[in-house]
């Protein structure tokens, strides 16, 4: 049960959140991107052993979609959250 740092509420129980998966690069401009690159962007999600940046939605809280860095080996949250993506 993670303790997730919410930028608005402070540390809160994981049970208040829904995980939105790893943060991907910004959505490319479809007019400037090849089919292959688009498909890669769509499908290739980061899945490292170690720190990964993740989206979490404070669904049972203030409603913020926050990002944080979580070490997949230890669950340690290695950098503070920020609400600006």
């Amino acid at each position: 049960m993670l303790l997730i740092p919410c930028p608005f509420c402070g540390p809160r129980d994981e049970s208040e959140f829904i995980c939105g998966g790893p943060v991907r690069p910004p959505r490319p401009d479809p007019a400037q991107t090849s089919d292959a690159d688009w498909t890669d962007w769509l499908i290739q999600a980061p899945n490292p052993v170690g720190p990964v940046q993740e989206h979490w939605w404070h669904a049972r809280g203030c409603g913020v979609w926050l990002t944080l860095w979580r070490d997949t080996r230890s669950h340690e949250i290695v950098a503070g959250a920020s609400d600006d993506g």
């Binding site: 509420c9 809160r12 049970s15 208040e16 669904a59 049972r60 809280g61 203030c62 409603g63």
Partner: peptide, 25 residues
Amino acid sequence: CPLDLHPTRFGPDGASFTRAFGVSA
């Protein structure tokens, strides 16, 4: 709910969304 409602953490003017009995509250 999982909130820490101790007076030192949740003051007399405290108000927050959280989860109670599994649903948003």
